[in-house]
């Protein structure tokens, strides 16, 4: 090897080192927050799930005891069932509803499209607390508009205590959740419809495809990545549904709106059982990871 090329490789090594150092310097401020307050707590969630942990004393190692207790905790199973019901109902409804709305409003003039997009996004911006408060009023037993409208239209005989009745409470929660979760998918679908290759659609129309065929055969496949993304975020969103339950029903009546998210919160803040709550967090994370993986797999196959 000549001296020259040795020098060259030394210099390139030097460059690589320099690139690494500068990259990490740029990353450093973010990494402090990310590692310290996202990754470390994630690790601690897993770690503490093997301990009997509470306030004001040292954690006691108990192995898989928390997980064993979870398996035998009827409230946990109810919470898991309710959580899955919320996800199974709200995810497909959100996706189909927002796709439909997006196809309609994307045909309108620009100004109308953005006005409608804005309106459907409003419940998200309004914030979970304000939204929950107004729905609580609308569902109210005595002066809520739902009982008034229902009675006036002859749908119900007497006022229903919507949120206090185990039969209806979860349905009410899902309805509110739906209004706060379609905003983002609509924005995404409108932009996806905008980005569809117009020449392909025109070619299909020239070949005599009906609008329905043009949509399902040409546009839909091109929007698959968007749909996949929407599926994933809507699933996570539905799992996260917390404020509604905390503010409206606190998991009641008779645990009919108890979800994993709320049960974790309940264990942490009412019972101070940190280890037990963390074990539930781990289970929840595993469920979400599996669901996301399945969704990705399905999306890629198509």
């Amino acid at each position: 090897m000549s001296d020259k090329s040795k020098l060259g490789s030394l210099r390139s090594n030097n460059l690589v080192l320099q690139e690494n150092v500068s990259a990490y310097l740029f990353l450093l401020p973010f990494l402090i927050f990310f590692v310290g307050f996202v990754l470390y707590p994630m690790f601690m969630c897993l770690f503490t799930s093997f301990f009997d942990a509470t306030m004001g004393r040292k954690d006691i190692f108990i192995g898989f005891q928390n997980y064993k207790e979870l398996a035998n905790d009827p409230v946990f199973w109810v919470a898991l069932r309710n959580t899955l019901v919320i996800v199974v109902v709200s995810v497909p409804v959100t996706c189909i509803f927002s796709l439909w709305v997006a196809t309609i409003i994307s045909r309108m003039p620009m100004a109308a499209t953005s006005a409608f997009r804005c309106i459907f996004y409003l419940p998200v911006v309004t914030g979970s607390v304000a939204v929950t408060m107004v729905w609580k009023w609308m569902f109210n037993n005595y002066y809520g508009i739902f009982n008034y409208l229902g009675q006036n239209m002859g749908l119900i005989d007497k006022p229903i205590n919507w949120l206090g009745n185990p039969k209806y409470a979860l349905g009410c929660i899902i309805l509110i959740l739906l209004t706060t979760s379609v905003g983002q998918p609509i924005v995404l679908y409108v932009s996806a419809l905008d980005n569809v290759d117009k020449s392909l659609v025109e070619a299909a129309e020239v070949d005599g495809a009906t609008p329905m065929q043009a949509f399902w055969r040409v546009k839909w496949p091109q929007m698959m990545p968007t749909t996949l993304y929407i599926l994933v975020i809507t699933t996570i969103n539905s799992f996260q549904c917390f404020a509604l339950i905390q503010l409206l029903t606190s998991g009641g009546p008779k645990n009919s709106t108890m979800t994993i998210m709320y049960y974790i919160y309940y264990n942490a803040f009412k019972l101070y059982r940190y280890g037990y709550g963390n074990a539930m967090g781990v289970i929840l994370a595993i469920i979400i990871a599996i669901l996301s993986a399945v969704q990705f797999k399905l999306g890629q196959e198509k």
Partner: peptide
């Protein structure tokens, strides 16, 4: 991809 509520207790 994780709901950040999962880490609420450690945080």
């Amino acid at each position: 991809a994780l709901p950040k509520q999962v880490i609420l207790i450690p945080l």
